[in-house]
Nucleic acid binder design. Sequence first.
DNA 1: AGTTTAACCTGGGTGC
DNA 2: TGCACCCAGGTTAAAC
Length: 270
Amino acid sequence: MPELPEVETTRRGIAPFCEQETVRRVTVRNPALRWPVPAELAARMEGRVIRAVERRAKYLLIRFDDGSAIVHLGMSGSLRVITDDSPLMTHDHIEVELASGTRLRFNDPRRFGCWLWSEDPDHHALLASLGPEPLAPEFNGPYLYRLSRGRKTPIKSFIMDNHTVVGVGNIYANEALFKTGIHPKRLAGRISLDRYHRLAEAIKETLSAAILMGGTTLRDFVNSDGKPGYFAQSLLVYGRGGEPCRECGEPLREIRMNQRTTVYCGRCQR
DNA sequence: AGTTTAACCTGGGTGC
DNA sequence: TGCACCCAGGTTAAAC
């Protein structure tokens, strides 16, 4: 589920229930996530007030006065708001109970997610070397052009690299490259400023639109299983290998780059 | 330093 | 039905 729009949707979904609420209890049922959940996490959170729920890249920061929980949803994680007595599901690894009685339930079948504690999250190793947020003004054509000079990595790898820009996962990399007409294998150092301008805009548009659509499932999100299904109809290439290109009708090609499915139009993307 | 590869996990789908 | 295999929205650490 979690590309950046899902993480932002999650943040918006849980923040109203969390902010200025006291944590009553943290239950870690399975600490074996990507890294072991630190034993101190519960003690650091219990009895403290959540001041804000923020997002940096695909990390959620649950901020307290003296530190933050750093949460990542990995490939298969979700965070749901529980207001009733709905039963535990398999892979419900962590639960945060608030003084209001509302609970946050973290479910993650593949356990690629993480829950860490940091007193200074903004300088934590996981966050310190990240590139700009895709929706920030400093992420733009000139930035991409400057950073890419001399680089021989394919453009798809380049924009999926967190050092370049955060939050561009496999789906949105495919979509943005199609919208810009850039072949995913084109070397990053061989792309013009003008094309980078359009690529940055396409990334912003694609992510913004997805966040807006994620927003439409927000109400559901509180009560439901938290699986937004917003993207299927709006995707131009992802999941459409072999089907006709929406621009020219030619069958879309599907290849693998860095172990990830890559879909593109051989005619429209150069 | 830049770039690629392997690894962390479970579950669902497919083909034999 | 069973089993082997491939695939999945992410990211890091190690290896070229």
